[in-house]
Nucleic acid binder design. Structure first.
Length: 430
DNA sequence: TCTGGGGTCCTAGGACCC
DNA sequence: TCTGGGGTCCTAGGACCC
């Protein structure tokens, strides 16, 4: 059996831990640049607000219903997530952290344990120790555990834990689950399946394997088996990433090469440090730049450029250099750019590197420099030291230099309560 | 005025090999 | 008129997840 542990409205719950006055009030959390809604409290859901709606479209409702609005604070959410996951790790034999707010527990060997009371104990401990409420679904496959988890949250009768441990419960749950609520069936396939008369998860299980294969490929067959009780979804944690993408929309559009280059250098070096963290190297890099696709009145330019590196590397110097080389190949004057990004690909372990005959760079030395930078930044905070091209501290200069336009816009950000002493003191002083 | 970021997997089709 | 068989690798695009 598997247990899915899923935090309720996770980002909202994190904000509420430090703002208990908002417990029963409508709260929402925005995406980067305060663009769209990414998390909402149940009160907001009841008002008809949906995930993904742009902020400007709901300004009136926010005023009218006095909705509390937060910019996303990933430092805070990441730290709260670690606390929840640590508790789950302590209380279970085998945990797979699936996302920032979800984990699967492998319950092999729990045959003699009452899974319902085990689930309730887990959720009691988590909410008491962290302030974050969780829903728990228990079932023989991950896909069924997801379905059980939905029931746990939807019906108060389950008291936060729903267990599917026999065929009668399984079939009942499948019949009550709309096809659009099945994990792995997205918008496109919902339209397709409903047109074919498949309305519930149960309807899907009635079709033959070959029918599923022809409509939904091998992915659908796995899902079909999972719904019927045969586990076939592998765990995907603890694997090194196969690609690492770092990108951001800008707070304000930028037009010059220099501004774009700063952003690309910054993303490239952040990517390089993620790469080193998982002990990998990359031998291909892609840089992309976008104009603002919503501004139909402006000329549009969206492009990318990939470069193969002469040997796999992970040091910031070589990766930033390659990224800027790619950017020079695609940059065009006369556009207002809204977003850039860097993708590191062809990733392999840093233990067995095929060295190039032609790479004249002293990779050993550059790696050492990056290691030292990582160490300093780990102790003193991100970007304490960085490459000069990144121009991190330009905002602090008193000269008439322009502010860094591409920096994120975050007007409603809470303090990093659990990780940043200076901010905690400021909040207390207030 | 204002519209997120970071991933994975699968398939089809083309280039190329013997 | 008639034009093989079997394979790998790479890429772009689509679909999905949180």
């Amino acid at each position: 059996m598997y247990a899915l542990v899923d935090c309720n409205n996770f980002y909202v719950s994190c904000e509420r831990v430090f703002r208990p006055d908002l417990r029963d009030k409508p709260v929402l959390v925005l995406s980067n640049n305060d663009g769209c809604v990414v998390a909402l409290s149940n009160e907001c859901k009841q008002l008809g607000i949906h995930r993904g709606v742009p902020l400007y479209q709901i300004q009136d409702m926010i005023k009218q219903h006095d909705i509390a609005v937060f910019s996303s604070n990933y430092t805070l959410y990441g730290d709260m997530s670690n606390r929840v996951m640590q508790l789950l790790t302590d209380m279970s034999p085998d945990i797979e952290i699936y996302s920032i707010d979800e984990a699967f527990l492998d319950l092999s060997g729990f045959d003699l344990i009452d899974l319902e009371s085990y689930g309730r104990q887990l959720s009691r401990v988590v909410v008491k120790s962290t302030g974050i409420a969780v829903g728990i679904g228990v079932a023989p496959t991950k896909t069924l555990a997801k379905i059980a988890g939905r029931f746990a949250k939807k019906y108060p009768g389950y008291k936060g834990t729903c267990v599917i441990d026999n065929d009668e419960k399984r079939l009942k749950a499948l019949k009550l689950t709309d096809i659009s609520d099945v994990w792995g069936i997205g918008r496109r396939n919902v339209t397709k399946l409903k047109a074919l008369g498949i309305m519930t998860a149960y309807d899907l299980t009635l079709r033959s394997k070959s029918w599923i294969q022809s409509k939904l490929t091998i992915v659908g067959v796995r899902l079909w088996l999972e719904l019927k009780g045969t586990p076939c979804i592998e765990r995907e944690d603890s694997r090194a990433r196969k690609s690492i993408c770092t990108s951001r929309s800008f707070g304000e559009m930028v037009s010059t090469y220099d501004e774009l280059a700063e952003s690309v250098a910054y993303f490239a070096s952040r990517g390089a440090s993620k790469l080193r963290k998982q002990h990998s190297v990359a031998s291909m890099i892609t840089v992309f730049i976008y104009t603002n696709r919503f501004r139909e009145d402006l000329p549009q330019y969206t492009t990318s450029q990939s470069l193969k590196l002469s040997s796999p590397v992970s040091d910031s110097v070589q990766i930033v250099e390659a990224a800027l080389q790619a950017l020079r190949m695609i940059f065009r004057e006369g556009y207002l750019y809204k977003k850039s990004g860097v993708i590191l690909q062809n990733i392999s372990s840093d233990e067995a590197i095929q060295l190039s005959l032609f790479n004249k760079k002293d990779t050993k030395k550059l790696n050492k420099i990056s290691q030292v930078m990582d160490e300093i930044n780990r102790k003193n905070g991100d970007d304490t030291v960085h490459l000069a091209v990144q121009q991190m501290d330009r905002n602090n200069n008193t000269a008439n230099e322009q502010a860094v336009k591409w920096r994120l816009k975050e007007d409603y950000k809470s303090a990093r309560f659990t990780t940043n002493l200076k901010e905690i003191i400021q909040v207390n002083a207030k």
